[in-house]
Each structure stands twice: as structure tokens, then as C-alpha cells.
């Protein structure tokens, strides 16, 4: 493993769709949300109109703590996009608040992630109107 990690390419902005724009706006305000079904109360991520459990459409954004465990990770050793410095890490996190849901993010730890490691989200501001969610070992 390298002594220190580089950073992913900067300036690759997400292209929200009509279902997800509000989720990104809330993330920019450092609020991490999932959709909670108003009918059966099942949580889901990423943004979708229908609840896959009960197939109804009524839902609301529910703020949850960005916590989880490391499901997997990779160490990028070549430039997949212009503007990155290698090596940089991308983690796949199993969300504590939403059983069965995984989320990708950057890695904000000094050491390599470990399988099953408890992690917490860290907001990374990318200007006034955008934040990304990176992950670091839980305290």
C-alpha cells in the first residue's frame, strides 16, 4: 500500500435526475437523507419514485446519520479520468440506516480500509451548491 493516498479527479460533477435533485440539494446543506415510504415505512436509496417493497409512490425524505460498514474498496492506480492523482481509494459502504443498501464514496482515512470496518460520512464541499460524501473510520 502507498504511504499516502492521492485524490480523485476534481470537477466531475454529478448530473442529478428529476428524482434525485432534491437529494443532492439536501446533501449540499450537509443533510444525508434516504426516502422513507409513507405506506410501509421501508427506507430506500438511491432515489426512486416507487417503493420496491409495497409499490406505492408516497414517501418523504428522512434524514439519517451517515454511518455504515465497509463492504469493499479499490485502490485506483491509473488515471481513469483526467485530473486525479493516484493512488486514490473508492469505498463501497453498507448503510447502517438502510438494510440492504450500498453507497459509493471517497476515502478520508490514512490507512487502507478494512472489511466490515465501521465508518462515518464526511461532507466534502465542492463549491456553494454541491457537497460529496466521503467516509472515514468511525470514532
Amino acid at each position: 500500500m502507498p504511504d499516502r493516498y492521492g485524490r480523485p479527479p476534481r470537477g466531475v460533477r454529478p448530473t442529478p435526475d428529476r428524482d434525485s435533485k432534491d437529494w443532492w440539494d439536501r446533501l449540499a446543506g450537509h443533510e444525508f437523507t434516504v426516502q422513507r415510504c409513507d405506506t410501509c415505512h421501508t427506507d430506500r436509496f438511491p432515489a426512486r419514485a416507487f417503493c420496491p417493497a409495497c409499490r406505492t409512490e408516497r414517501w418523504h425524505w428522512e434524514a439519517v446519520s451517515p454511518e455504515g460498514t465497509v463492504e469493499s474498496w479499490i485502490v485506483n492506480r491509473r488515471p481513469f479520468m483526467p485530473g486525479s492523482t493516484e493512488p486514490y481509494v473508492v469505498v463501497l459502504v453498507r448503510l447502517a440506516a438502510v438494510p440492504g443498501c450500498l453507497i459509493h464514496g471517497g476515502w478520508d482515512g490514512d490507512l487502507e480500509p478494512e472489511y466490515g470496518q465501521a465508518v462515518q460520512g464526511v461532507y466534502a464541499d465542492m463549491g456553494d451548491d454541491l457537497a460529496l460524501l466521503n467516509w472515514r473510520p468511525a470514532e
Binding site: 434525485s20 438511491p46 474498496w73 479499490i74 486514490y88
Partner: peptide, 23 residues
């Protein structure tokens, strides 16, 4: 729609995705 949650972290190419699952 999945790309928006991945590309900003420098993650979108098949070798990255498969490496993630392999690990």
C-alpha cells in the same frame, strides 16, 4: 441514473466496478 452517485468519486469504468466486486 447510477452514474451520478459514482463518477464524482472518480469511479465509473468497468475495471473499477469489477475490482470493487472482486474485493
Amino acid at each position: 441514473p447510477e452514474v451520478q452517485y459514482q463518477a464524482p468519486y472518480g469511479y465509473f469504468a468497468p475495471p473499477q466496478q469489477y475490482a470493487m466486486y472482486a474485493n
